[in-house]
Design a protein around this nucleic acid. Sequence first.
DNA 1: TGTCAGGTTTCGG
DNA 2: CCGAAACCTGAC
Length: 275
Amino acid sequence: MNKLYFPDFDLYSTLLGGQSFSWDLEGDEFRGFTSSRYIKLKKDGDFLLWQTYPVTDDYNYLKKYLRLDVNYEDILNQFPKDEHIEKAKEKFKGLRLLSQDFPDTVLGYLASSNKSVKAIRSSVRKMRERYGEVIEVDGEQVKLLPKLEVISEDTIDNLRTTGVGFRARYIYEASGKYKEGFLNNVHELSYSNAKSRLIELSGVGDKVADCILLYSLKHDSVLPLDVWGKRILTNYYGLSQKMKYNEMQKWVGEYFNGVGGWAGQMLFEYIRGFK
DNA sequence: TGTCAGGTTTCGG
DNA sequence: CCGAAACCTGAC
């Protein structure tokens, strides 16, 4: 495996927390699947050991996915100083944000609405089983995450067999639109323009759009406001439960210094008792 | 078996 | 604009 010096990287909370549904822990090795790569990753002290498949030694892919070019200390230094953040940081220092492949993130979060992380992971694996490309990894056959183009060529009824329920229509329609290029330039748009475009997709509302914008497109100031995100704001920071989504998000943008996504991820895992 | 999970859409007011 | 109901299914 390849080796990189990388302290301050908590693989467990980063890969198995709430931001990706595509990683498993086997022994001391994390194994992840995207729509184009299978990745093996583990920690050896302050080093990261890694390999990519079917294209091996693909450092550029890993670097983008894990956001290896961010200055982690700088980000932590921008966190506001308060007791909740201090506690969350104690437990989750090393938790980082990923930049997952855009279509993969759209798929995962379209499948996520009104479902627990565990149930989402299960659906994602069923879709992977049905649609994922087979590749060979160290002599073993494994499947990748499906490409949206492949899903768009199947039927909604078949898609339903993967446990996505009423979300099948959302995934199917979004796959077709993606294939037509509807989302081609979202990564170049401002936060609000990109968000408007995403919300035009059926099945994407404020929260799912914010997840895609944060976990794939690196809009780091956003804290996705699901029930846990809202609990952070109401229970820890005294915001009223009556506040509207966009009002809360505006507060996040101001209070968290532009790194609400990073701080929020730690608070999110902290408040939901992960790990 | 019954309830819960918990985002978006849809519908009634 | 707002609140409430409906949506599928897996987990427990």
